[in-house]
């Protein structure tokens, strides 16, 4: 178990520990079943091409869930994710690395809780941002 991250140890400009994912077509199908999203552009290559895509694409919501995982991994047991937003700007394809990253933009106390705001994004192997957004989290104060 890694050491619990605390508010006092986090500064504006700090990076969130990145998370690298390499979703397979199979994972897209598992995700489709888990959330009940049966849009064929995520499993039927011919259909995806007929809708103007070059092949099946990773579900935007799965990219959102990856960004959520990056944050909850970083926050540890006592941190909490309060808000997450992201816009899906580009396509992620199965078989390609998808790297989730984040950076602390603000920290403040409010109503007895210790808040951290971050910008978050996902990159494809070319380093292009395919999704980006923001997150609000809370952390324990620390000693």
């Amino acid at each position: 178990m890694t050491k619990q991250l605390s508010y006092k140890d986090v500064n504006v400009g700090d990076g969130v520990t990145p998370l690298v994912k390499e979703p397979t077509t199979r994972q897209l199908v598992v995700w489709a079943g888990a959330v009940g999203d049966y849009t064929p552009i995520h499993y039927d290559k011919d259909f995806a091409r007929s809708r103007g895509l070059s092949g099946v694409i990773v579900q935007g919501q799965l990219v959102g869930a990856f960004l959520g995982q990056m944050l909850t991994d970083w926050l540890g047991e006592k941190g909490e994710l309060k808000k997450l937003s992201c816009s899906y700007k580009g396509m992620n394809y199965p078989g390609e690395a998808l790297t989730c990253k984040g950076e602390v933009t603000k920290k403040y106390d409010k109503d007895g809780e210790h808040f951290i705001e971050c910008k978050i994004w996902a990159e494809n192997p070319k380093g292009e941002k395919t999704a980006s957004g923001r997150a609000v989290v809370t952390l324990p104060a620390g000693g």
Partner: peptide, 13 residues
């Protein structure tokens, strides 16, 4: 719609 494409997600927990 023949298909739908997700453009963005915002969650408040």
């Amino acid at each position: 719609f023949k298909s739908v494409l997700m453009a963005g997600t915002e969650l408040e927990c």
